[in-house]
Design a protein around this nucleic acid. Structure first.
Lengths: 215, 215
DNA sequence: GACTGTGAACATATTCACAGCG
DNA sequence: CGCTGTGAATATGTTCACAGTC
C-alpha cells in the first residue's frame, strides 16, 4: 500500500499499460496477470509489478488484476478525466496529421483549437475545426481553458509562440520543432525530433556494421 | 583518452550537441566551451563534458573545443557519413510531412524511397519522389541498400510491414504507429507516439493542479 | 588563469528472488 | 498453490569538485 511519488520512468510506461488494458477490455477479458500485461506492453513482469505498486495495491495475490479496475486506476493517475482540451499551433502537413490523429484515436483528448499564421490557412476547415489566427492565440487558449499544447510551427517562430502559450496559462507543451526552447520551471516541455531519432538509429546501425566487420 | 562503450543516455544527447555545433559553425564561431555548448543544448556543463569524454579527449584545457573538429567527431560517432538512405512506409499526412522534413533539413539523411499500399497514392509524386507499391517493399529496400526505415502506416498492418522490413535487411526502425511491435534483438526499434506523449504531459498537468489546490 | 577530463559521491532505475497472502 | 508486492542487489545515469594541463 505504497503511496505517492510515481517515478518519471514509471510515468513514461503508464500509457503503454493503459493501451494494453484498453485492448483487453475491448476483447472482454476481465482478469489479467503481470506476465500477460507485461508481454502486451513489451516490458518485464517484475517491472510492471513495480510500476503498478506505485499506484497502490490493486492486484490480488494468487489471482492477478481486474482489468476494468486497473484501467480506471491508471487513467485516473494520468489525469485522463473526460476529454482534455489540446491546442495545436502550426497547421502544416504535420499539424494536420496530428489533428486528425487526436480526433480519431479515442485517447482522452479533444482538439480545442487549431492555430496558424498563414492567411491562406486561417479560416479553412481541418479535422472539423476552423483554423484560427495566431494573433488571437492567447485569447483562444484562455477562453478554452487549455492546459496542453502541441507545437509544429517553423523553427524561427517557435520560441515566440512558446512564450505566448506560457503567458496564456498552458502548463504542458509537446514540440516537434527541432530547436531548444526555453520555458519556466513550472511548465513541462517534451520534445520529439525526427532528425534526433534517426541519428540515434544511425549510431546503432553503425555500431552493428562495425561489430560485423570487426568480429 | 577513454575509448568505447558510449552509454545510451549519452547517445540520446549527441544529436543535440551536433545541432548546437552546426549552429556555431554556421555563425563562423571557431572555438567554444562546455558552458556555451551546454547552454545551447539545454544541459549542464558537467554532463556535456562527461558525454564528450566518451568520444575521447577533443578539448583543450584552459581553452575549450574546436567547433569544426568536434562537429566532425560527433558526426562520425553517430555514423553520419555522407547521406544515409531512409525508406518511409505509409504516405498519409504524417508520412508526407516526414518526407518533406528529411528532404529539407540537412541532417545527414536522404529519402531513398517512399512506399504505400493505397493504389491512389502509389505512383504519385511526394517530396520529389514517386511513391512505390508496398508489394515491392523488400525489393526496393534491398536494391537501395537501406538500413533505416520510418513507419507511419495504419496500426493493423504495422507488424506485417515491420517483419518485411527486417527480412529485407533493415536494422533500425522509427515507428509512429501506436502499437507494440516485435522485432529481433539485432534490430533497433524506436517508438514515437503522440497519445503517449500527451498522456505524460497530462500526468504532470494534473500533478500541478493538485499541488496548487492542495497547498 | 581558465577550462577540460574524471574519480568519487550521489541519485535513479531495473532486476532478482522470495516472503506474504488470497 | 500461484501470483502479487517489495526488500535487497545490481546497473545505469547525473552531479560535484578538483587535479591536470595548456
Amino acid at each position: 500500500m505504497t503511496r505517492r511519488a510515481v517515478p518519471a520512468s514509471t510515468v513514461r510506461r503508464l500509457p503503454l499499460y493503459l493501451r494494453a488494458l484498453d485492448e483487453l477490455a475491448e476483447r472482454g477479458v476481465a482478469q489479467t496477470s503481470s506476465t500477460e500485461l507485461a508481454e502486451m506492453a513489451g516490458v518485464g513482469p517484475a517491472q510492471l509489478r513495480r510500476d503498478l505498486s506505485f499506484l497502490g495495491s490493486h492486484g490480488v495475490r494468487g489471482v492477478g488484476y481486474d482489468v476494468e479496475h486497473l484501467q480506471a486506476q491508471v487513467a485516473a493517475e494520468l489525469g485522463l478525466t473526460g476529454d482534455l482540451p489540446v491546442v495545436i499551433v502550426g497547421i502544416g502537413n504535420l499539424g494536420h496529421a496530428l489533428a486528425n490523429y487526436v480526433v480519431e484515436a479515442g485517447t482522452g483528448f479533444r482538439v480545442a483549437a487549431l492555430v496558424d499564421a498563414d492567411p491562406a490557412v486561417v479560416g479553412t476547415r481541418v479535422a472539423g475545426l476552423v483554423v484560427e489566427d495566431v494573433a488571437d492565440l492567447v485569447d483562444v487558449v484562455r477562453r478554452a481553458g487549455v492546459a496542453l499544447a502541441v507545437l509544429t510551427t517553423p523553427a524561427d517562430v517557435a520560441q515566440d509562440v512558446c512564450d505566448r502559450l506560457v503567458a496564456a496559462g498552458v502548463t504542458g507543451i509537446l514540440t516537434f520543432v527541432p530547436r531548444v526552447l526555453q520555458v519556466p520551471d513550472d511548465v513541462d516541455l517534451r520534445t520529439v525530433d525526427l532528425a534526433t531519432e534517426l541519428q540515434i538509429l544511425a549510431f546503432h546501425a553503425r555500431r552493428r556494421s562495425l561489430a560485423r566487420s570487426g568480429a
